[in-house]
Nucleic acid binder design. Structure first.
Length: 422
RNA sequence: GCGGGUGUGGUGAAGUGGUUAACACACUGGAUUGUGGCUCCAGCAUGCGUGGGUUCGAUCCCCACCACUCGCCCCA
């Protein structure tokens, strides 16, 4: 128990960190060119924020949150997603006062109590983007292009972008009612889940995987046929913008977002080779959320990408090979008398910016040479009794096996001349 | 939350109700004095996810738990 991390958590070990850094680097440079600025919000928030923001009846809020009461009696929840928190921060610090359009992005851990499986962990990482303050369809398109470019920039191919509009408070209730009317006399044929969805969120019946439900939902009214004029023209414009950017998409009138705050545009990007957890990024417009949380009416769009899934995709596609570990120099000390001079040499090498290693375990020369070899060192610097006595260091070129003795003062210069460093 | 599969050393794995749990890689040491990468030799699980039970005896049979995994669900 003590030597095992909690279920659904994952250590990112040194040999994998490179890949994370690589992806994070891509994110930061991409966001920079789109004018999105990084924001870092707390890992926990008041539980009420998520209840209000995400929606009381969503699975996330109902059964997946890590919630607890702190010592001061506050209801606290580890963030299950970051949109609500970003909006909270946006409001708390009145960022809306600075620009008409606020562009934010974040990278961080999220927490959901869910059954772990490939690509789904209890602590997972998301990269997300939020654009707050502008209602126009160009912002939707900007966000979608950013999401697509992010995945493309990593070399992922065969991504699918699904697009839909889920309406707004003007037209969604009407659609909802039409859907309920459609399903009302079919209720008995629906699965148990769908029967409860009928009341709570009938749109979810449409993407039920059960064949019987699928068959019953044939011929159901489509949301895109029921959009109000505002939503319809918005949707058309988003499509036009995407086409102008050369972004391929497919319309999916059954695409429903799980969180209550979505309005109008909804989209999802899948990477099919991942199997069951193939949704890599998803998002959409959430014009009602800011007000819901207590701010001024503020339209907004955003998306989030699951980084573990991105990592899986990179891994299975062999898209990122970490650079091999390569030391510049490996310092070898032989005998007691050499230890101190060798250590001080090591320090000055590092101070000079070399990647310098040393085996501190006091093993045989042969063993230390093996270490140097394994570390891919360009040079081995050997300090034994003779060298200490003569004030020199033996410099061995690990590629050519050439050896020269060099005065201790001249070592760094000799290495600089040899252009060891990158 | 529901259903299926799996669990042997650092890794990949063979194996059997009964004496010393294969093999490979990795790791450590050595092959004459202070020199790597090849080769050769040796060492390396008192232990077969954890805890119970059955049995004269269990890594191998049963139960529970834990973890991983594949689906469902949910989502990123």
């Amino acid at each position: 128990m003590l030597t095992q991390g909690p279920r659904g958590t994952k250590d990112i070990l040194p040999d994998t960190v490179d890949r994370w850094l690589y992806v994070e680097q891509k994110i930061r440079t991409l966001c920079r060119s789109y004018g999105y600025q990084e924001i870092r919000t707390p890992i926990f928030e008041h539980t009420e924020l998520f209840q209000r923001g995400i929606g009381d009846t969503t699975d996330v809020v109902e059964k997946e949150m890590y919630s607890f009461t702190d010592r001061g009696g506050r209801n606290i929840t580890l963030r299950p997603e970051n949109t609500a928190a970003a909006v909270r921060s946006f409001l708390e610090h009145k960022l809306y006062a600075e620009n008409a359009l606020t562009r934010l992005f974040y990278i961080g851990s999220m927490f959901r109590y869910d059954r772990p499986q490939k690509g789904r962990y209890r602590e997972f990482h998301q990269f997300g983007v939020e654009a707050l303050g502008v209602a126009g369809p160009a912002v939707d398109a900007e966000i979608i292009v950013l999401a697509v470019r992010f995945l493309e920039s990593l070399g992922l191919k065969d991504l699918t972008l699904s697009l839909n509009s889920v309406g707004d408070p003007a037209c969604r209730p009407i659609y909802r009612e039409r859907l309920q009317n459609f399903f009302r006399d079919k209720l008995n044929g629906l699965c148990e889940d769908c029967r409860s969805r009928f009341e709570r969120n009938p749109m979810r019946i449409l993407d039920c995987k059960k064949e019987s439900c699928q068959r019953l939902s044939e011929g159901a009214p489509e949301i895109t046929d029921c959009l109000c004029e505002d939503c319809r023209s918005h949707f058309e414009a988003v499509k036009a913008y995407l086409e102008s950017a050369g972004i391929q998409y497919s319309l999916d009138s059954r695409l429903v977002r799980g969180l209550d705050y979505y309005t109008k545009t909804a989209f999802e990007i899948k990477y099919p080779p991942l199997g069951a957890q193939s949704a890599v990024a998803g998002g959409g417009r959430y014009d009602g959320l800011v007000e819901e949380i207590g701010g001024p009416p503020t339209p907004a769009v955003g998306f989030a990408a699951g980084l573990e899934r991105v990592m899986l995709a990179l891994e299975t596609q062999g898209l990122y090979d970490p650079p091999p570990r390569q030391a510049d120099v490996f310092v070898i000390a032989l005998g007691e008398a050499a230890k101190i001079p060798a250590f001080s040499l090591l320090v000055s090498l590092r101070d000079a910016g070399f990647l310098a290693l040393m085996d501190h375990s006091g093993r045989s020369l042969k063993a230390q040479m093996k270490q140097a070899d394994k570390a891919n060192a360009r040079f081995a610097l050997i300090l034994g009794e003779d060298e200490v006595r003569d004030g020199v260091v033996t410099r061995r070129d690990m590629r050519t096996s050439e050896q020269v003795k060099i005065g201790r003062q001249d070592i760094i210069n000799s290495l600089l001349c040899a252009e060891v460093k990158d």
